[in-house]
């Protein structure tokens, strides 16, 4: 089991491979090495300020949210922020 990370936009270059569409960077991380989305950013050498929207299993999520084997995390870059914040809050 591992954690699958989907990296959008200019963050795609941080991933070793892409999804079948070629548009999304894909990284598979060992679940025992990371405990939270923040840890994932660190492993991928990403600073929080380089990111905007974070999703864990389709939930709009906070940086500190815990992750487990089998989870799917999606990370958007700073220049792709576009959610209506009044309809979304980050799940802690």
């Amino acid at each position: 089991m591992s954690i699958k990370v989907r990296l959008y936009g200019k963050l795609k270059t941080k991933a070793p491979t892409t999804d079948p569409t070629g548009q999304v960077g894909i990284a598979e991380l060992d679940g025992s090495r990371v405990k939270s989305i923040a840890d994932i950013l660190e492993v991928l050498d990403l600073k929080p300020e380089e990111t905007s929207h974070l999703f864990l299993n389709n939930d709009y999520s906070a940086l500190e949210r815990r992750v487990n084997d089998g989870d799917i995390v999606a990370i958007f870059p700073r220049d792709m922020a576009l959610l209506y914040r009044w309809y979304f809050s980050r799940r802690a």
Binding site: F55, M80, L82
Partner: peptide, 18 residues
């Protein structure tokens, strides 16, 4: 910024992930 770089269609991936 987002709208200038990608237009409103930047929402496709974001809303899909949501």
């Amino acid at each position: 910024g987002t709208l200038n770089s990608y237009g409103t269609d930047a929402l496709i991936n974001v809303i899909n992930e949501a």
